[in-house]
Design a protein around this nucleic acid. Sequence first.
DNA 1: CATTAAGTTCAATTAAAAATGAACTGAGGG
DNA 2: CCCTCAGTTCATTTTTAATTGAACTTAATG
Lengths: 143, 143
Amino acid sequence: MTQALGMPRSLGEIYGLLYATPQPLAFQDIVARLEMSKGSVSQGLRFLRTVGAIKPVVLAGDRREFFEPVVELRQLVAGFLRERLNPQIEIWGARAKALKPADFALETLSDKGRGTLANRLEKLKTWQKRAGTVLPMVSKLLG
Amino acid sequence: MTQALGMPRSLGEIYGLLYATPQPLAFQDIVARLEMSKGSVSQGLRFLRTVGAIKPVVLAGDRREFFEPVVELRQLVAGFLRERLNPQIEIWGARAKALKPADFALETLSDKGRGTLANRLEKLKTWQKRAGTVLPMVSKLLG
DNA sequence: CATTAAGTTCAATTAAAAATGAACTGAGGG
DNA sequence: CCCTCAGTTCATTTTTAATTGAACTTAATG
């Protein structure tokens, strides 16, 4: 699944291990169990944390940090939308807004062509608005 | 956007060119305009077609096939969900169903651990069902 | 404070994905 | 029928992304 959404496989492996393990695991446990480099695990955990797919657990009397999976689908999806999709939509929307009809070679076009382009330019701008309202709804639908 | 969703940049370029051009374009137009190889354009167009992001247009008296963009966000999203996400969810769901408690080293676990695992295993199965009902709703929301 | 264990960073390497391009197929047109 | 044009296929190359690993921080411990 992570790969289908354009994220590294290692993320899926780490999350999967945490999911399949009833106790929280420490950094080193993951490195050992997945035979993965510390670097990958470090970056993987960081991303999973920012996305809200895992949560840190402190165990008394242990210096290490432990992790357990967030098992609510709603939160996983919300995190993905927030951290991955939304930023791109922002960028995309900003660019769409900056586009002016003059950015196209309008002089060379028929009236009909100009109309079509103007239409599409408008549509582009509504897309972003629509995304902005729909994405939060999706998160809620899964709650 | 296409890259954020784990698809090649070239797809975005082709769709973008079609979107920014009021007339339908032929295969060769795209190759020329994007300075892209025939191979890439061929594969790109094929994917965009299966996803329903473009539609073929036949112009009378011209042997070539022309394309124009599908500009309805709803259809674009629906196509992505159908062609990219759903297949993965199917696979994932099938695997989840095939998992048995015995696939985990249950003997080595406390009762609490066993309970947690059984819970998660159940949850995994509900995820797929939920996805199956929510994805179509998403498509409709955008309509 | 020195030491050691825990985790991070990032340049270099490796692996994966995408783009290329040449050889191929197949449909019209002459 | 043969030739040309339109597009496809796929092995190779190129590009991009992910992984590694060694050097570096940071913080707890004796």
